[in-house]
Design a protein around this nucleic acid. Sequence first.
DNA 1: CGCCGAGTGTTATGTTATAACAATGCGGCG
DNA 2: CGCCGCATTGTTATAACATAACACTCGGCG
Lengths: 164, 164
Amino acid sequence: MASACGCDHDPATWASRVKDACLRQGAQLTPLRRRVLDIFSGSAAPLGAYAILEELSRREGKQVAPPTVYRTLDFFLEHGFLHKIESLNAYAPCEHLDHAHHGMLLICESCGCSEEIEDAGVTRAIADSAADAGFALRRVMVEAQGLCRKCARDRLSASAAAVA
Amino acid sequence: MASACGCDHDPATWASRVKDACLRQGAQLTPLRRRVLDIFSGSAAPLGAYAILEELSRREGKQVAPPTVYRTLDFFLEHGFLHKIESLNAYAPCEHLDHAHHGMLLICESCGCSEEIEDAGVTRAIADSAADAGFALRRVMVEAQGLCRKCARDRLSASAAAVA
DNA sequence: CGCCGAGTGTTATGTTATAACAATGCGGCG
DNA sequence: CGCCGCATTGTTATAACATAACACTCGGCG
């Protein structure tokens, strides 16, 4: 499914890439997990655990309990298929399944979509800075809030129209 | 009070710097806020809202309700005296009161203490990277988990002892 | 006085996450 | 087949984090 916000990510290919990765790694992609995968595929924006819970309940036609969802999320997180966005308490597809990711997350405050970019310069700068402090890095999170390309453009043209 | 973890930050001078900043800015440092300040002064590690709540209740000798604590935290956050650490749901003193801070937080998984460092290289790399993506930054959060200098050293000497 | 606004108190509730234990399903193996 | 062991899922309850809504106090000021 195409992204609703006009950003250029594609959750649908993500789902199929996750399926491949499960096969390669021998990880079980059970019906439950597949359904959760589908739910992420249909959403351009990060999803909260309880949003997934509700959608899952709706699709299954019966009430699903929180641990079911959190266990499924844990599975995807452990395999590196999903990221947890701490500043939103939400979860989003990892767009770089293949390699270790110290990606930077750009979260649009207007359309709610998130984009994950990898930047060697950022990674290196953080590693250098931590090394200077004598700190042994294990996990790094970079989350930025702001306006994505499209929303920034829209806002500009809106204010231009207001001036005219 | 000295830091319990051996790291080289000093929450006590932080409290007095906050007091100065309140005077300069005309912000009211009420008894409640002062008590919360004292609680942070006595702790080397970030504090959760409910930890503050319990400590506050203990010191006041009567039960304090969550909104009281959260409002106080909001006051400090808005004035830039505290940071919220999203990955811990906890709050820590801002060690750079004077200037806008896009600091990077180093959180030790062993002793729990956190250190805030400012690094122009990191800031610049993130700004450049976001600009490349056409993303208008508004707020950036960098949180790293790992081992602080002291804990990394301790771990090293422990494993050396194990080998011997 | 009478009003206002900042701060705090109080009650209730919303949101996010986990603990603990039971049940199911499936493959291997005697 | 019957049993075991393991991964997964179901179920119940509760913990942990956060906010909404409204009441009350108190000091400043016309």
